[in-house]
Design a protein around this nucleic acid. Sequence first.
DNA 1: TGTTTTAGTCAGCCTCTCTGATTAAAGTAG
DNA 2: CTACTTTAATCAGAGAGGCTGACTAAAACA
Lengths: 139, 139
Amino acid sequence: MNIGLLLYIPYRDLENRIMAAVTGAGFDVTLAQARVLQRIGPDGTRLTELAEAAQVTKQTAGFLVDQLEKLGYVERVPDPTDGRARLVRVTEKAKGATPVAEAEIARIEAEWEQHIGKRRMAQLREALEKLGEITDPYR
Amino acid sequence: MNIGLLLYIPYRDLENRIMAAVTGAGFDVTLAQARVLQRIGPDGTRLTELAEAAQVTKQTAGFLVDQLEKLGYVERVPDPTDGRARLVRVTEKAKGATPVAEAEIARIEAEWEQHIGKRRMAQLREALEKLGEITDPYR
DNA sequence: TGTTTTAGTCAGCCTCTCTGATTAAAGTAG
DNA sequence: CTACTTTAATCAGAGAGGCTGACTAAAACA
């Protein structure tokens, strides 16, 4: 079986479950919105940085931030260090989502470890981390 | 680091490279089209089956098959065993794409093995296959 | 025979993503 | 200090890919 599909199957499962947990907890965000939301730093992040981190164009990031803003999950404030820029900041409303996602990830990882064993889980992580060295374009 | 991202990074790298190889060889298909094309069996496959395998609705699969048909990569023929159904079949024109994709996969796997070592590569495969048992909705 | 299921299509809509052009502020070279 | 270039963000327009709902025709079943 193709290694690509082997990687994709658990990834999709994980992503679906995290999204289900987050939306189930009342945070009504889409996957694309969540990908942006996730990258906003504690003191706010510029749109351009978000776009780079999420690997989309500035226009796409702007579009998603517009939606998140309308939903009340983020706000845009002027960047005091640069008159052109604005900082996208997570609102209080959105801050509850992170622990929900993290709890679900922990739950899934525990299930996986339960099924494939502690040893194999550690090997999986190790192999993937090493693979990231040559496949991650952002390092 | 999040296990989801760890899975996703090499997956995306693989997918991007396969698509680059296939389109570079002159097969002008999009990712979504390729996902459908890939699932067509040697004797043709019904639209409904393709939709299930690719995890999209029948309408979406039909839309993609329409495009592939216009491009000359597939043809629709009546299913002799069911008057309602039609079989989607890969044309000669598209058959050259498979070896291109397979060669690229082989090349990538060799590179990965080179970097992380034969042992870790085998462990990775083993862990992923076992993980598929609980994360693959189609088994 | 009449009802229900199944294969596929038609119509319409939404989300996400892109390219290209524009505005305003910052940085830089003369 | 002024003119040019770069950078942050937005506006405008388009296209791909996905969905739901309604429908037709053939098959399966009671």
